[in-house]
Nucleic acid binder design. Structure first.
Length: 265
DNA sequence: TACATATGATCAT
DNA sequence: TGATCCTATGTAA
């Protein structure tokens, strides 16, 4: 689940459910018992996201979470929702609503200064209120590495993961192997705009959907079925939705990526 | 019961 | 580049 849209969605949901409240905090699994004790009974001021990082700012401390590959938040109502699973490292609750966190790679307490330090290492966030695309453009101009590899670097742009990198480059007709510094200004601008548009869409829907329904013969209303949501991700060997050419797949930056060899040059 | 897999990132070599 | 960490789920044995 977790690319940038997921964390911003959680920030919004958790802010609504727990923001401004005095929360109970505990660690059902036990591995974050000490940290939970520091949080327990304190007021959660606000929940914010930057890229894939989530920050819970309490009156006296900041909770920093990174979900990694398999981490997950579950928001449940305590009255009729399921209890925390055995692997739940942290539960936060107030007013009958509970947030359970499991599988995250980073769950740590830090300070407001520590939060600023984490954010300073990250590139512009396309889901921020006023992101700075010039920093994105400047970073690309400095990199000779393939654009498909550079897009995964969170210091270049914060929040893109393996699904979005493949989909965004398809949508802009850019081959992932192209050196980042060889993109034209128009391509860089288009890629940034596409990133903002798509992540916002993912945030709204709560899932990654890049396919234009009209392009696959569906109405704009109603959710696309799972096998029609994406253009290239995990579609190796299957026909491109636009030109029918079989989708390619190869390792790029240590992870598999996908592209249409005809639509992306 | 075991294994493979996953939208991530870090650290050792 | 490879090993490693974290959890949940689906498939194979």
């Amino acid at each position: 689940m977790p690319e940038g849209h997921t964390l911003h969605r959680q920030a919004r949901l958790q802010q609504r459910a727990l923001g401004g409240r005095v929360v109970r905090a505990w660690s059902p699994q036990g591995r974050f018992a000490d940290g939970a004790a520091v949080l327990d009974g304190h007021r959660l001021e606000r929940v914010t996201a930057h890229g894939k990082h989530l920050f819970h700012t309490f009156e006296h401390v900041v909770l920093h979470v990174h979900l990694g590959l398999v981490g997950v938040f579950r928001l449940v109502t305590e009255a009729d929702g399921p209890p925390p699973t055995a692997g739940t490292r942290l539960s936060l609750a107030a007013d009958g609503v509970r947030v359970d966190l499991a599988g995250a790679t980073t769950v740590e307490l830090t300070t407001r200064e520590g939060m600023r330090a984490v954010r300073a290492r990250l590139g512009p966030d396309p889901l921020a209120r006023r992101p700075d695309p010039s920093r994105f453009a400047a970073a690309l101009a400095r990199r000779r590495a393939p654009i498909g590899q550079v897009l995964l670097d969170q210091a270049v742009v914060a929040g893109i993961g393996n699904v979005y990198r493949a989909e965004l480059l398809f949508l802009r007709g850019i081959h992932p192997d192209r050196p980042a510094d060889r993109l034209t200004p128009a391509e860089v601008e288009g890629l940034w705009q596409e990133t903002v548009t798509q992540l916002r869409h993912g945030l709204r829907l709560g899932r990654i959907v890049t396919v234009d329904p009209a392009e696959v013969g569906r109405s704009r209303r109603g959710a696309l079925p799972d096998d029609l949501r994406l253009y290239v991700y995990k579609r190796e060997g299957q026909p491109c939705r636009r030109c029918g050419t079989p989708i390619d797949s190869w390792l790029l930056g240590g992870r598999l990526t996908w592209a249409c060899p005809r639509c992306q040059r």
